[in-house]
């Protein structure tokens, strides 16, 4: 079942790239693995619930429920990631590893931990529900369960490896500037999610303006290609972006980056949460 494996790979790749960036970006946060685990479990359970409720979700908002649901997930994840980047910059010293033994500092770390779990759950949920639906469909057609397992596990492993390599790559390659590099990767991720969410709302006719594509770069880099999909996930690449998409992308970067650098000013960095 190669085609099943490929679809699983694509969905897992998206999840694992996002997780790779988030995990690389939250390295300084103590006690995070337990919350990452909670996030993964919530995400997998959420995928099952969403997959089972596809019809009900679809019928909401006069047939635009899927768009609104996915847009909400993306925009919420984007806001959480953006605020976490700013928060981490602000609390960089408190959450750095050598200080985490002090009880007070651990409490300070509690905020990004629960947010971290939620972001991971939202990430897994969006693409995970598609894998569940696809697998369910294969069961209905009574295909070979062994083939499905082989394809599914193959796709899962391959997708996870790419994400893992990226996680290790980010950490190794940017040891000196790890905080700046991961902050910016998180900002691009956050902006990409926001623009995808906004594009979904536009496709549901909720934000109807500026929908014509600004350019078409699909001849250069197709979104369906491996590189295109990777850049889509990491940087929000779209081969035919609308003005609304590009505008929301740039605006998100501007807002998060300026919040991050404004909080570096002495009068802000002295305040404690």
């Amino acid at each position: 079942m190669i085609s099943f494996g490929i679809v699983v790979f694509r969905e897992v790749l998206e999840i694992s790239l996002v997780l790779g960036i988030i995990l690389a970006g939250t390295q300084q946060v103590a006690n995070r693995w337990q919350w990452i685990g909670i996030g993964l479990v919530m995400g997998i359970l959420g995928s099952l619930v969403v997959a089972v409720s596809t019809d009900q979700i679809s019928e909401l908002m006069e047939g635009m429920g899927q768009e609104v649901f996915n847009a909400s997930v993306l925009i919420l994840a984007s806001v959480l990631i953006g605020s976490t980047v700013v928060w981490m910059k602000h609390h960089a010293r408190q959450i750095s590893k050598h200080l985490t033994e002090v009880g007070e500092e651990v409490t300070a770390g509690a905020r990004p931990l629960s947010v971290l779990a939620l972001v991971i759950a939202l990430t897994v949920l969006r693409d995970g529900s598609e894998i569940v639906l696809l697998a369910q469909g294969l069961f209905v057609t009574a295909g070979s369960v062994t083939d499905m397992l082989i394809g599914g596990i193959g796709g899962l492993v391959a997708g996870t490896i790419v994400g893992l390599l990226m996680y290790l790559g980010i950490i190794r390659a940017s040891a000196r500037y790890i905080f700046a590099v991961t902050s910016w990767l998180l900002i691009f991720l956050c902006a990409g999610m926001m623009s995808q969410g906004i594009a979904l709302l536009a496709s549901a006719d909720i934000l109807p303006m500026f929908s014509a594509p600004l350019w078409d770069s699909s001849w250069l880099l197709h979104e369906g290609s491996l590189l295109g999909q990777t850049l889509h996930t990491m940087f929000g690449y779209s081969s035919r972006p609308s003005g609304l998409q590009l505008g929301s992308y740039l605006l998100t970067i501007l807002v998060v980056a300026s919040a991050m650098y404004l909080l570096k000013l002495p009068r802000f960095s002295r305040t404690r949460a």
Partner: peptide, 11 residues
């Protein structure tokens, strides 16, 4: 990709 659309149709 050409239309920028992605939507699940259940069985």
């Amino acid at each position: 990709y050409d239309l920028n659309r992605e939507k699940i149709v259940s069985g």
